[in-house]
Design a protein around this nucleic acid. Structure first.
Lengths: 253, 253
DNA sequence: GCAATTAATGACTCATCGGTTATTAACTCT
DNA sequence: AGAGTTAATAACCGATGAGTCATTAATTGC
């Protein structure tokens, strides 16, 4: 009994907004530009969303939830593998034993899923890293990165305790390296017109990482040094609290 | 014959501005807040600087020049090493031969210098990555990162041609990994109260990288596959042009 | 002390942009 | 067709903050 809203309007707004956010950041994007790109007026925006922040919050929440889900199935999958098949040893790696190769395949599978998700939301990654300063989402990127590093800490700890990881380097480095690599790849994605060869990337990341982290150089450490290195605490975990900031009607200062 | 300006005012403004830029970004920082932090009025700012952008441009230019200088001495040093001592081989790495160890020491020296510079300008790194959207410096961070990756391409190419690097991974991955690691470390620095153990980090980065990049797994490739992998082009170089954007009096749209 | 000169102030202008709202357009149901 | 309802518009308001400039304050040389 009433005029129905253009069914495409909402999606069209989200699409245009994501584009503008990439170009100018959350604060820099003008609502009128977003609506103009959809052939709508400024007021129409407020029929569909409470604010720019609310729109972005919706999309970011979606991405975040999917990423968290991936990370936990990743963690669960690896734990299951370690339980049933055992943790790959130095010898497994050196001899490219089946246990190591199967572990790598599993790890690659999860990496691939993460890379695919990053591709799908590459604009959101870009925005949350570069374009949310002075908004409610300030700091969200850093929380997500720390989340991811904490997740890697788990793997690192397992390998370290088993003696598979070399003990001659700072504990936080491996997580920083992996997350840094992913970040850099995400930054590159925003400029890409087509999806790169993620399978090759996942392969490379794993091989480069593990065969570099393996204790090939451990022989150079004295037993005491190795013992000490093992004790060095890894990156401390952070919980999920505060990762997602609620959209708020920001009424003035 | 005239009233002299407060000699501390200029430095004090730069200091306060850098702090505000970290907190709110280049656009988000208010000139009045900067001057207030120095006990000055807004007008005083314009006696010393043409604009916020001009101030930041000065500091960034300084950082950029020092980084470029480091990168080129780095490149020159390695080239010299390769010329006089030769490129480390797979065997050198496997046997931890003197040539490899000396190479690592050299590389660590340069990495240390880069990390020290990043520490000194950690606020600037943070700002240029996170807080310059919609300003003249938009894109500068990305150019610097690409610069750095192009620099690593050189090393990668030398090792790849010598057959020291494994051939079973995407060519651009190694530069992305190293630069990603550095970025992640820089992001971490902004929250640190005291300088971390850069020597340990430099050690770790090198060991993790090289002993992972070495052709330990190359045996799994057929000669044809290896040949093809070697031919895969590495990241293309970018020149210095446009890296430093001139400060401009931005008079409206 | 006084004239000359420049530092420093802060009230002002002006443009921008988020958000509001009175008004109009479009659609549905009877 | 026309009443009822909601989508959509665009003029408007108010806050914000960059940059200007007339005015005042401080300092120096004589």
């Amino acid at each position: 009994m009433a005029r129905p809203a253009d069914p495409k309007a909402r999606n069209s707004l989200i699409h245009a907004a994501r584009e503008k956010f990439v170009q100018h950041g959350l604060k820099g994007a003008r609502i009128e530009d977003i609506t103009k790109a959809c052939g709508l007026s400024k007021g129409a925006f407020y029929l569909h969303f409470e604010s720019k922040e609310a729109l972005f919050g919706e999309v970011l929440q979606e991405f975040g939830e999917r990423m968290m889900e991936l990370l936990s199935t990743h963690k669960a999958g690896l734990t299951e593998f370690f339980k049933t098949e055992g943790v790959p040893t130095i010898a497994d790696v050196r001899e490219q034993a089946s246990r190591y190769l199967r572990y790598i395949e599993l790890s690659k599978k999860y990496n691939l899923a993460i890379l695919e998700l990053c591709w799908e939301y590459r604009d959101v990654v870009h925005i949350v890293v570069r374009g949310v300063q002075n908004t409610a989402f300030e700091g969200t990127a850093w929380l997500m990165l720390q989340q991811a590093m904490a997740h890697l800490e788990h793997q690192a700890r397992v390998f370290a305790e088993k003696g598979t990881f070399r003990g001659d380097m700072t504990a936080g480095l491996m997580p920083a390296m992996v997350v840094g690599t992913y970040s850099m790849l995400c930054f590159q994605m925003i400029d890409m017109k087509q999806k790169p060869d993620f399978a090759a990337l996942a392969h490379g990341i794993n091989r480069l990482l593990y065969e570099g982290c393996v204790a090939a150089a451990q022989q150079h450490l004295s037993p005491a040094e190795y013992e000490k290195a093992l004790k060095t605490p890894l990156l401390t975990s952070t919980d999920n609290c505060g990762l997602w900031v609620e959209k708020t009607k920001r009424r003035n200062s």
